[in-house]
Design a protein around this nucleic acid. Structure first.
Lengths: 210, 210
DNA sequence: ATTATCTATAGATCTATAGATAATGC
DNA sequence: ATTATCTATAGATCTATAGATAATGC
């Protein structure tokens, strides 16, 4: 808290009030875009609509971003890292994040119904695949980080096996959530999330929920 | 071949030349849209561009579809079923499709680089999730069909275990391909596809490619 | 007579920019 | 003096429709 206050004061001393204000506005625009992109897709809304939600008008946008693609890169990037944040929150709460807890939260109904605050990969991967090189480079880095995080939650295995299992886990989580959201059948949607979650937590047995 | 000819003749007798012609045109539009949607996304091009590629002009579109959403539903639906077609092709070639072959083809570089002719789920799932109810209902049905097909390629297991494994397989294939396409790092992209492919083919061992 | 397709366009977007206004910061 | 934000708009889209044209099918 003390650190936080000193940061704000430093910003004001070094940057002046309006620059700090601009940065706050910039972050607000990115936060809104980051949520709305996950909810509506990378082409799901226009700049005017975004700026209106931020309490601004369309003309101000280009003092913050050189182009719409700039916003996409920054907002997608800011959508990344949900596992890292979950891990830090769990640790500061005294209960370190477990592999099973990560899986259960990912496969939860709350996550399925709220893409705007959830994993950017299950919400956007195919659209990121069609984005510019810069966004895809940022995505490479994030996949690498998330794999390391998953490997860290899989102790007691040799490094190579843990990496393989992390890659399978990551892929299955993203695919299961993308499929579960794409279908209208509630029962099948829940079956996919529960089945994949159980098998990922207990890969030895193929028999789950009995 | 004889059956094919008699079908064409029957169509001409019953429907008249122009109706048969219209149906052919309709199918051509859907086939192009089906490919381009997978390549560029559901919002990736306009009706004028699509009709131009079909050798037509924009005005004719609405004699074939009530709305753009109608086209999306039909074209996405027509993009489905790649495994069924693969299975039929393999069988008519005398070499029934195996589980391992389906996995290897799915995880191939050819598939990764050619979304337009590949799996509609890995190319479009999050965008389908934002589509209208009708498209999502068609998607439910297709997921069900594809799960049955996968279960049929997994003999020697009890029904429940086979269904669980089919669901994990489907999810992991879709997620791995979506991630592999979203990143710019070629080595990591290939690592994801190879690792997930190996683990899905050999779920007992977590050690692959050695 | 019917209708698939064409040309042309209405009306609603979209991204991006120009120039005015108002606030900070020297 | 600088610049974040505003209003206004250019120019390029987009979906959908109106009305003309040309072909099939009775």
């Amino acid at each position: 808290m003390i650190l936080l206050w000193s940061q704000i004061i430093l910003e004001e001393v070094h940057m002046g009030y309006s620059k700090a204000q601009k940065e706050k506005t910039h972050k607000r625009i990115v936060a809104i875009a980051s949520k709305r992109f996950r909810e509506k897709g990378l082409a799901g809304f226009g700049i005017a609509e975004l700026m209106k939600e931020a309490g601004l008008t369309v003309g101000g946008f280009y003092k913050h971003f050189d182009s719409r693609d700039d916003l996409v890169a920054e907002a997608v990037s800011s959508a990344f890292g949900v596992w890292q944040r979950q891990k830090e929150a769990a640790e500061s709460g005294g209960q370190p994040l477990s592999f099973a807890k990560l899986i259960d939260d990912y496969m939860s109904d709350a996550h399925r119904k709220n893409p705007g605050t959830g994993c950017a990969f299950s919400a956007l991967a195919p659209e990121i695949a069609r984005s510019d090189k810069r966004t895809r480079a940022l995505t490479s880095e994030q996949v690498r980080k998330d794999l390391e995080l998953l490997i860290g939650l899989l102790p007691g295995e040799d490094k190579r096996a843990a990496r393989s299992r992390a890659i399978l886990t990551f892929s299955a989580l993203v695919g299961a959530m993308a499929l579960a959201r794409a279908i209208s059948d509630e029962a099948l949607s829940r079956e996919i999330l529960n089945t994949v979650g159980d098998l990922l937590k207990n890969p030895a047995s193929e028999h789950s929920r009995e």
